[in-house]
Each structure stands twice: as C-alpha cells, then as structure tokens.
C-alpha cells in the first residue's frame, strides 16, 4: 500500500470522543502515524507478516495501520475501555482484524518475547512522570524484533540512556524529528495548538544482535 493511501485511510478513523487528560489521550495524526508504520515496513521490514503490539493503542491508529500493511497479528493494549471500543469499531470499519486487551501497561504479564514488533505513541509523562519509560521498558521486554516509539525531543539523552543502560536495549536510534500538534483539547493548554518537537525512535532488544 502506498503511503498516501495509508494516510488517507487513517484519516477516516474515529478518535477519542471525550479524551481523558490524566491518560494523555491525544491521537497520533494520520500524517505521522502513516509515516511511522510505513517506515517500519519499507525501510526495516518490521510489519508485514509480523506479530505487532500497539501499546496504549487508544482508538487503534497504529495497530490498524500495521494491519493495513499486512501484519499477521496485531494486539492493541489500553487501560481505557472506551477507547478500546472505538478501536474495535475502527478496525471493523476498515475491515481489518486486530485483538484488543484491556490492561495497564505496567501490569502486563506476557509469555517471553512473544511479539515481533511493538509500535507505540506513549503518554509523554507530562501528567504522570515516568509513564513513558514504563512503556519503553515493557516494550523491550516483550519484543523480539524492534520497538518504534515517539518521545519528546527534549528528553532525547534521557531516553537513550534509559533504553541502553536500564532496559538493556542493544541499539537506540532516532530515525527522524517530527512536529507533533497536540490539539487544544485540555483547558490548561492556552494556545489553540501546541507544537511539540518529537523524535521517532527505533530500539532493538538485546537478543536480536546476539541471534544475528
């Protein structure tokens, strides 16, 4: 599937109807989401025919994009049941099949490295400090292939250090820097849209470098 076509389809998805501030619920827009998944597949071959998990899947954008690029099996996880219902409707709308699990990422208990690729746009940790690193830590525990994630550019050094030293990643690489418009959905945002510089990361878990 062409990038433009993927972006177009993602633009049709329904997004959070009543976003919860404390969970940092804002969607990954179709522009960024399509590029993230398209890059993961076209540059690295990490989506098609793979088992993909979408952590903090919200309304399912990244997981559904993976399914559209022929991931064999997709599992979306979110702590908010309302978003999962929207994700389920979105998948049906685009005629793809994804599994959904209602769970807090911190309490996931999955068997070994059962996932090939984790894709995620975790909360940045502006509401509850450290939640972004909890997502990354868990992603590197379940992924045998690669982890794609978005983090604020201002935290680049911290992310790199945590991934390599604390979470035992083999590599941590910034693929590109993006502008992320966080729409004014929360009262504490004074401006209409807040433009945040965000890095698209690719992490490899340790076992990969040993196996190859």
């Amino acid at each position: 599937m062409k990038l433009k076509q993927l972006e177009g389809l993602l633009g049709e998805l329904q997004q959070f109807s009543a976003p919860k501030v404390e969970l940092e619920q804002y969607p990954t827009g179709p522009h960024i989401a399509s590029r993230l998944i398209h890059t993961a597949e076209n540059t690295f071959g990490d989506i098609t025919g793979k088992i993909v998990a979408d952590f903090g899947c919200g309304c399912g954008t990244l997981g559904i994009a993976s399914a559209l690029l022929d991931a064999e099996h997709v599992v979306g996880v979110d702590v908010d049941p309302g978003s999962l219902e929207i994700a389920s409707e979105n998948a049906e709308q685009l005629e793809v099949s994804i599994d959904l699990v209602w769970c807090d990422i911190r309490n996931l208990s999955w068997k070994g490295k059962c996932i090939d690729t984790v894709v995620m746009n975790p909360p940045f940790g502006t509401r509850r400090k450290g939640v972004d690193m909890e997502f990354l830590s868990m992603a590197l525990q379940v992924a045998s292939g690669a982890v794609y994630s978005l983090h604020k550019t201002s935290t680049r050094e911290h992310v790199k250090k945590a991934a390599l030293q604390s979470f035992n990643a083999a590599t941590a690489e910034v693929l590109c820097e993006l502008r992320f418009d966080v729409p004014q959905m929360y009262k504490f945002h004074k401006k209409k849209e807040v433009d945040v510089a965000v890095d698209l990361w690719r992490f490899l878990p340790q076992s990969v470098s040993r196996a190859c």
Binding site: V75, D99, V101, L108, S109, W110, C114
Partner: peptide
C-alpha cells in the same frame, strides 16, 4: 480474541 493472543497471556496478579 484469537487463540494466538490467549497463548501469550499469563495471570498478571
């Protein structure tokens, strides 16, 4: 939920 997902899940208590 597919059986593939079932195969991955353990009790998380």
């Amino acid at each position: 939920m597919r059986l593939l997902t079932h195969n991955m899940l353990a009790c998380n208590v």
